[in-house]
Design a protein around this nucleic acid. Sequence first.
DNA 1: CTGAAAGCGCTTACAG
DNA 2: CTGAAAGCGCTTACAG
Lengths: 349, 349
Amino acid sequence: MPESANGIARRPENRYGNRPTMKDVAARAGVGLKTVSRVVNGEPGVTPDTERRVQEAIEALGFRRNDSARVLRKGSTATIGLVLEDLADPFYGPLSRAVEEVSRAHGSLLINGSSAEDPDREQELALALCARRVDGLVIIPAGDDHRYLEPEIRAGVATVFVDRPAGRIDADAVLSDSFGGARDGVAHLIAHGHRRIGFIGDMPRIHTAAERLRGYRAAMEDAGTDVEDAWMSLGVTDPERVRRAAEDMLSGPAPVTAIFAGNNRVTVTVVRVLAEHPRPVALVGFDDFELADLLRPGITVVAQDPAKLGRTAAERLFQQLDGSLVTPERIELPTRLIARGSGELPPAD
Amino acid sequence: MPESANGIARRPENRYGNRPTMKDVAARAGVGLKTVSRVVNGEPGVTPDTERRVQEAIEALGFRRNDSARVLRKGSTATIGLVLEDLADPFYGPLSRAVEEVSRAHGSLLINGSSAEDPDREQELALALCARRVDGLVIIPAGDDHRYLEPEIRAGVATVFVDRPAGRIDADAVLSDSFGGARDGVAHLIAHGHRRIGFIGDMPRIHTAAERLRGYRAAMEDAGTDVEDAWMSLGVTDPERVRRAAEDMLSGPAPVTAIFAGNNRVTVTVVRVLAEHPRPVALVGFDDFELADLLRPGITVVAQDPAKLGRTAAERLFQQLDGSLVTPERIELPTRLIARGSGELPPAD
DNA sequence: CTGAAAGCGCTTACAG
DNA sequence: CTGAAAGCGCTTACAG
């Protein structure tokens, strides 16, 4: 037997490393298979003496029930899947954790994976989870066509979308109120005297980005202000592009006096640009982030509640599995404006 | 058939929602079971015409292979598990993502879960993953006794510990150089004229906390400075306790002129305390964090590389599974001091 | 090129 | 209280 990387002898060459099965335990304990099953699953109807013999055999052999086999026979995996964009994004940590806690409370294990914002990878992952027969799926969609899930949903896989709605299928969705949040944030800047307000957001094919843009336009219209094209930048939110967009808005004969940032990555980049900018510029960002209050000025944000998004979605998923939900719904969670200084700066005209 | 929460009819009442099996596909296509298996798995030896008939049946029935059954027969799940402390902690995001990418490159799915720093929950999770017959386990340990894993390792489960070593078993571990990093960070403060330097860290039963404390002591000793008990605080790193510890060190007749913070949560709390403090106090923190450079002053840190920790651990795991690793090792990744201002403040004596 | 039989490790339904 | 037989949905080993 080879010495393993763990100093404990390993037998990886065989099936499941040649693990003992219930049959082995039964043989060693001198009982039937079903009796072992009863002991392993804590079912009643085993004399203390028999139980002890079985337990001893289990310990001696290092037996652990193979849940793959169990699942195959029982027909339910007690597992749910979570497809998110990027585990490394701090926004998804609390969301994922909240889904995990709800799942745990319902006796389910959570499998999660990152789509890396790639629609093909989202589909690949979601279908791989279905092949493992997860009971349900919580999806933060990267793509905008989810018809590939129709056979799965028809077959009984519960499905809830979070952060963005499903595309081309009618499914449960739990979202933040992007439109209302952005409108409030921009209205806050207007209330502090700004009219030339820039908007930097994600590609408008992303639902949240489109909604936030719509909120910006609505607030500007409410204030009777015409929006100039030069004030809006919509596209991928990598630092390079955002930096250029911010610098463009802040230069020229009539620069903006305030910026509304469409998500946390944009906000952080804009903060860096403004730190180097000669005149103070007001800033409100969508999404809260750690340390926003420690910057000088503190950053005023429209905060979402990622943990609540996750919790709400997971609870809906289990309600679907209970059979207590019948109609797909779109749930919108409110956002909250947190004033910290950057959004209250007056125009530097 | 009931209308589902997704507007698509769902049949959750039956086994796996009553999904079609290969047998159903075979019957519909008028072929044998094995032929369906060949088509589903892309094996050769099927005429184009037969293949087409099978494909049509698959589409018509909405068939998707049940990987639970496959896994049972094949004896390998192509799945690895990751047990971490808290998905909501930004330190673990990039680590988890790196493990996922390596896993994906090896054709494995990743299942991860949080121990919430609870040793019992760590064990429960790790063993649940073993019951699902993961091929290997990457563990960020919460507990300090991992003998419960011995039967699993013996049975062939590959195991790598990250961030902290295993307790009471000999296993692979990938760590940051906590001792060296802390020593360098404290030496940096000493080089800038400080002698009364505080240390705020986690409970010393946690390996990294003990190592960082040891680094602090070593640097102080190298400088010929006696450490006073009042300069050290070791315990849980919730904001309340850290705040009190910092305030205590900064008051009294001979307050510290600099603080070394043992992890990112401590650092952030200390920054808040210092922001309200009348005199400037130097600060070096273990762990880098987003926006550390945007604070005024920027926060000097001893940076780890969480993504590299994850990548290294996952690669070692797959090396174990290849059979190419034989001896358990402890790998220490270097840390990097990043000077940003807070660690270069002179003593305010 | 194609398929019938056996078996993976459990649970279910049943009989004693 | 206990256990033998059948079966979950696949793949393997084999025969035609």
